[in-house]
Nucleic acid binder design. Structure first.
Lengths: 338, 338
DNA sequence: ATGAAAGCGCTAACAC
DNA sequence: GTGTTAGCGCTTTCAT
């Protein structure tokens, strides 16, 4: 049982009876090479099954065709859908993806960023809810290509893609108002996250524009996660003057509200309307199906990836911020106030 | 605006007033180094924010702490849940993950495997439904650590983790039989995939053991995907002697059946019982909630990652095949035949 | 115990 | 056009 030694560029050179660097040139589509030699090299590569060694290539100053993705975690469909979009684009461009999850440990996170930027990666996609200003500066200074996803928090002008959180929340609130609801409960997201604040803003703005009062009692703090949302739902539904509708800052929270409503023997939408945000796959499947604001998550990933690739191609293009439109999806969880 | 040059081991050496290799030794916890020097080096590393360059390290024969994952695609929760488990374990072990999606292009796939094995990766996780015998041989020959996930197709003894597909399908079928169903429709998965065949086997075995006839008319070919499942569902539900229950080889297919049933004005479970396989998140949320066979997907990922890590530690340990237990989750989509 | 030096596989000047 | 050669940042002998 022979241990197959990895084929190097040297093996190819020998087999094709050309020099070392000629092979390199062929592999990298450089210069003009005598067609006959190029053919020999190509044949040898094919026959030997040569695959270039990325590390060596990158180390020597070449391109590794690798893009890094640092993501907080993979827990919800939210991240995963974005990941899908990224993956598609990156693969289509024949780049490879290094995936790093930080699990919220800031230390880990910056090590990851460093590893990636000083390592294989030629570009960076950052899907982190907050607090990345530390390395953004560094990246900008080093002119290292990167794109932020769903994060507008950096003051300067960092390339970023996100969704129209504010207007999405505005539309959802407006929808409820149009249905005749007056007391509309709101469960916030994690307010350190920009998107969460924007959604709150949208909610407030819709009320104000409609001439309704923003009742602080109806705004309950959440964090985008289920446990906190369950508490928030209880708090809202046990109010003496119970709201006739609830707008949760994401679907995961809205699903929690749905559960609590069921516990309280409240029928949705008859006794209470409910709106979520995100349109995760579950939203369409629960009963009643959730009215929600769709974020084009996969597209966000796709657009971010494409933006990164073009920044990598032309390092000097001015940073762009893209906001993809959200869309109100009306389903069965909302109806006119009776 | 100074362009920050990446900090190399040489910078650290200068700052700590020691040699090049001493720093390397400290970084790799080697030998005995005079504590005082070690401290100086550590301090310099900290102060300069030095992060080792993985490529260089790997190239020079060191460890890169990278594990590669080749996955067919990320379309369903199936892959994603496994990915989560993998990610958790890999991150906990302080390894990094390179993610490759092959999107079914076999050529891409083998290039990916080659890139990974000749590159950074020290181990490989393969989540591919089929046809990987080509490189399995190669990997085995080279003694390259790898673990297959949900794939038993390789004749030799390849390290693999999967779930008890057969007994899961057996249990589900048994459940339906116990409820008094006699004509039980079955929608297969992609039969090139081992798991699909095992599920079919389990279905057949349960019928046989129960003394029922396996009616070929009731077995319809699917491929784990929605479009084909919709057709299959129609075919089954339009049978002159309509089955009183349907068992689909995965939840995605079962969900499709649910839709078709609704179209046909069949109530589930009253007019027809329905069972799926996988227990993807949507299964619990549809109405009625889906009775299904839970695959411990996240655990499968976790176990596979752990197995890989231990193979990487002791290359000579005999390959292990782990089968994780599936579990029948009875929900609202099944009831006794009326 | 620690410094010097030889590569790892490759790219990119630099020669010819 | 194509071969030669100097590194890229690091690990690992081999001296000392």
């Amino acid at each position: 049982m022979t241990i197959t030694r990895p084929i190097t560029i040297l093996d190819v050179a020998r087999a094709a009876r050309v020099s070392y660097s000629t092979v390199s040139r062929v592999v990298n589509n450089k210069d003009n090479i005598v067609p006959e030699k190029r053919a020999r090299v190509l044949e040898a590569i094919e026959r030997l099954g040569y695959v270039p060694n990325m590390q060596a290539r990158k180390l020597a100053g070449g391109r590794a065709q690798v893009v890094g993705l640092v993501v907080h975690d993979l827990w919800s469909s939210y991240q995963v859908q974005i990941l899908r979009g990224i993956d598609e684009e990156i693969a289509a461009a024949e780049y490879d993806l290094m995936l790093y999850t930080s699990h919220g440990r800031a230390a880990t996170e910056s090590v990851h960023v460093a590893t990636l930027t000083q390592g294989l990666a030629e570009g960076l996609l950052l899907l982190l809810p907050r607090g990345l200003s530390a390395y953004i500066d560094e990246l900008t200074k080093r002119q290292f290509p990167y794109v932020l996803i769903d994060h507008q928090g950096v003051p300067g002008s960092a390339p970023a893609v996100s969704a129209t959180n504010r207007s999405g929340a505005y539309a959802a609130t407006r929808h409820l108002l149009d249905l005749g609801h007056q007391r509309i409960g709101f469960i916030t997201g994690k307010l350190e996250v920009d998107a969460a604040r924007e959604r709150l803003d949208g909610y407030r703005a819709a009320l104000t524009d409609h001439g309704s009062r923003v009742d602080p009692e109806l705004i309950v703090k959440g964090d985008f996660l289920r446990p906190r949302a369950l508490e928030a739902a209880h708090q809202l539904l046990e109010l003496p003057d119970r709201p006739s509708a609830v707008f949760a800052s994401n679907d995961v929270s809205a699903l929690a509200v749905l559960e609590v409503a069921r516990e309280c023997n409240l029928r949705v939408p008859d006794d209470m309307s409910l709106v979520g945000f995100d349109d995760i796959p579950e939203a369409a499947h629960v009963h009643p199906a959730l009215t929600t604001v769709r974020q084009p998550l996969e597209d966000m990933g796709r657009v971010a990836a494409r933006a990164l690739l073009s920044i990598m191609r032309e390092p000097n293009r001015p940073p762009e911020r893209v906001e993809l439109p959200t869309e109100l999806i009306v389903r069965g969880s909302t109806c006119a106030r009776t």
